Amino acid sequence: MILEQTEFSGRWQAALVSVLQVLMVAIFAVGLWLGNGGVAVNAGVGFLVTLLPAFLERNYRFTMSTGLVLWITGAMFLHALGTLPLPGLDLQTLYGSTWWWDHMTHALSSSLVAGVAYAVVRALDQHTDAINFPPRFLFGYLLVFVMAFGVLWELLEFYISLVAQLLGNASILTQYGLDDTLLDLSYNTLGGLLVALFGVVHLTGVSDELATRFDRRQRERDD
C-alpha cells in the first residue's frame, strides 16, 4: 500500500512538473508577444533550469527524486509568473502588486541554493576522511553561504537595473529600494534555515549519489 502511494505520488509530481514547464513556455511566448524582454528572459532561463535534472540524468546518469525536481520547477515557475503583467491586476505584475510574492520567491530560490551547497558538502564529507563537517558547523555554513549568495544577487540586481537605466531599457531584474533588499536578505536566510533544519530528510539521496561519483572518480585516478 505504501509502495502504491509512493508510485502514485511520483507520477502526480512528474505530471505537475510537466504542467509547470508548459506554463513557463507559455509565459515566455507571451513575453515575446508583448515585446517584454524581462518576462521572456526570466521565463526562458527558468525553463532551461528545469531541464537540468533531465539533462544530468540523460548525459551523466545523475538522478534526482521527482519531489526535488518539482521543488526546482516550482521555484522557477513562481518567479516567471511574478514577472508577467496580469489582466486581473490591471496589467501589474505579482512582484509589483503583491507584497509577499518577492519574499516568497526569494525564500524558495535561496532554499535551492542552500540545497545545492548542502548536497555537495555532505557528499565531500562522506567521500573522504580528510574532511569532517560536524552538524553545528554545517548548519552555520549553510546560513553564511546563503547570506553571501543573497548579497551577491542583490548587487547583481542593482547593477543590472543601473545599466538598464543608462541604456534606456526595461530591467530584467528589478530593485525596489534598500528596505526591500534587507527584507530579501532576511527571507534568503529563512530559506537557508529551512534547508539546514530539514535538508537531511530530502537531500540525502542527492548527497549519496554525489559521494558515489566522487568515489568512482577517485578509483579511476588511482588505477
Rank of each mutant, 00 (worst) to 15 (best):
Q21R: 01
F77I: 15
L78Y: 01
R213W: 01
W33C: 11
Q5A: 12
A15T: 12
D90N: 15
N36L: 10
S207M: 03
R136T: 15
E154N: 04
V22A: 13
Y141P: 03
G96Q: 06
A114V: 04
L190R: 01
H202I: 15
N59K: 15
L32K: 10
F139K: 13
F137R: 07
N42F: 04
I172Y: 05
W12S: 14
V39P: 08
D179A: 15
Y187N: 06
W101E: 07
L32S: 06
F28V: 00
S18H: 03
I2L: 14
W100F: 13
F77Q: 05
R217K: 14
S207H: 00
L138M: 14
G140D: 10
E57I: 13
H106F: 04
I2E: 15
M1C: 13
R217P: 07
N132R: 10
N169K: 10
N59P: 12
G35P: 06
M1L: 14
V146L: 06
I2M: 13
L48F: 04
A15D: 02
A26C: 08
V195K: 05
V120K: 00
V17R: 05
R122P: 00
L68M: 11
L34T: 03
L194H: 01
L112M: 12
V200P: 02
Y187V: 11
W71Y: 11
S161G: 07
W101I: 08
I172C: 05
I160P: 09
L108H: 05
L155R: 07
F137L: 03
I131Q: 04
G205R: 00
F28P: 05
T50P: 14
Q92W: 12
A119H: 02
A15F: 10
T93H: 08
F133H: 07
